[in-house]
Simulated scan of single mutants.
Amino acid sequence: MHMTESNHHQQRVAARTRARDARRSGTPVVVLDQPVDAADRTARCRSRVRRAVSTDSFTLYAQPIVDLRLNQVTRHEILLRVRNDIGEPTAPWAFPDMAERVGEILAVDKWVIDHALALIGRGAQTSHYQINVSGKSLADPGLLDFVNEAIRRHRVKPECLTFEITETALIENRNEALAFATGIRQTGCHLALDDFGTGYGALTHVKYLPVDLVKIDGMFVVNLCHSPADQAVVSKLTELCHTLGIHVAAEYVQDEGTLELLRSWDVDFAQGYRTGRPEPIAVTPKHQVQTIEFELRLPPQYTAMG
């Protein structure tokens, strides 16, 4: 009982704080007599996602990925940002999570795929682009056909594309993930396994899936210089994947010391704020761009390197 009362008190304090901040910023505040029930919350979230998709309330960013052997940017990961009410891009995590929770993520994934391929098709296609696919979307049997049609319509070279799926997606949708992976490889695209090392079946996944690249989860990388345990995990996972003929990328690379460790273990690619922050590549079809060709531009820290 004490825990419940404490939680309610904390919620009331948080609500008063948010209301006060909203009034200071001029944001309208609506006070409800009763909490909104779960069904109404779900319906409102679905409506919000559908409205965002129909009004193109998104923008795409590209984060550079450095080839550690060449010391060059040879890839980019395409990232989604959602625009707020005044048109500014907001943090990327909450919206996809909400869309997954209310069963609307497929529409978001299709928007990203279609608009990313439209942009890629306008460029010289001399770089390589990585696009994420939600685990929930993999359950849709029409997704592969949608991807293939978009590749043809936008005249994109399949070999320039890698589709990333997460270990969580494999655990929840193993058969669907395998069907998508097999089909996407037959199209000529590549396949990456994201968040590698966090799931119980990590080694099983690289055994049965036609994976070209694994991205070691950032939880093993962000503190790499100071954690012997993380060093052991990253070095051994890299050795294992290379034995299987799979390339390895490390996420959340924040400093030069981490880069040096990754090079010492022959990790293939590095991604993080040390090698390049995400940059906007387009807003909506109403704001046309000519190209998204960022490749072959070295980050400042590499200009003096061979």
Rank of each mutant, 00 (worst) to 15 (best):
E167Q: 08
Y273I: 15
N71G: 08
Q34S: 12
P141S: 15
R263W: 01
P158K: 11
V49A: 09
G201I: 03
S127V: 06
W111F: 07
P300H: 01
T162M: 10
G199N: 07
V133I: 15
D97F: 00
R185N: 13
D266G: 08
I65L: 13
L161V: 00
Q125F: 02
G197K: 04
A192E: 03
A249W: 03
Q290A: 09
T42C: 07
R152H: 06
V102K: 08
T291S: 13
G135L: 09
L106K: 04
V211E: 01
E167D: 02
A192Q: 01
M219K: 14
P300L: 12
E159R: 12
T4K: 08
L170S: 08
I246N: 03
Q11Y: 10
K236W: 11
A169D: 00
P92A: 15
D33W: 14
V267C: 15
E5H: 11
C189L: 06
Q231P: 14
Q254S: 14
D21M: 09
R101W: 01
G245V: 13
Y200M: 13
D109N: 14
R46I: 15
A116G: 03
Y302D: 01
R153L: 05
L144W: 09
G257Q: 13
D109P: 15
S54I: 06
A181S: 05
R152A: 14
A192L: 14
G197V: 06
A116K: 01
R153F: 01
G201Y: 07
A304F: 04
S54V: 09
R153T: 14
V66D: 03
V222G: 05
R44G: 10
A39K: 00
A202D: 02
A38T: 08
C45K: 00
T17Y: 05
N175E: 07
V156S: 02
G306Q: 15
D21V: 04
P285D: 12
N71T: 09
Q288I: 06
R69F: 01
V13D: 02
I246G: 05
E100D: 11
V253L: 03
V234R: 01
E77N: 04
E149V: 10
L119E: 06
F196D: 04
F146R: 10
K207I: 04
A15N: 05
G26Y: 01
S54T: 12
T243R: 00
A202K: 03
